[in-house]
């Protein structure tokens, strides 16, 4: 399973991609990510599983790609 970080979230994580062991759902993944990167807890972002945005806890199939996308303000 692969987690992709976008925009200025990479300043918080220090990486753009993270390979991690499979977890059952997105809630579990977020708990793990916030433990690993505590600054994520105060960040604004949306989550997509295999390029589909989610609005609540979602089952993660093995080998999925999870995108963590913050808002951009620049213009």
């Amino acid at each position: 399973m692969e987690v992709l970080f976008f925009g200025q979230l990479t300043d918080l994580t220090g990486v753009t991609t993270l390979s991690c062991d499979h977890v059952a759902d997105t809630d579990q993944l977020m708990t793990q990510l916030k433990e690993k990167y505590p600054a994520l807890a105060n960040a604004t972002f949306m989550v997509a599983v295999n390029n589909r945005m989610i609005t609540g806890n979602t089952v993660i199939e093995p080998g999925s790609k999870i995108a963590i996308m913050p808002p951009f303000s620049g213009g």
């Binding site: 976008f6 925009g7 200025q8 913050p70 808002p71 951009f72 303000s73 620049g74 213009g75």
Partner: peptide, 9 residues
């Protein structure tokens, strides 16, 4: 449309 450093939406 919006940009951030090297990325855009």
């Amino acid at each position: 449309g919006a940009v951030s450093q090297y990325e855009g939406q």
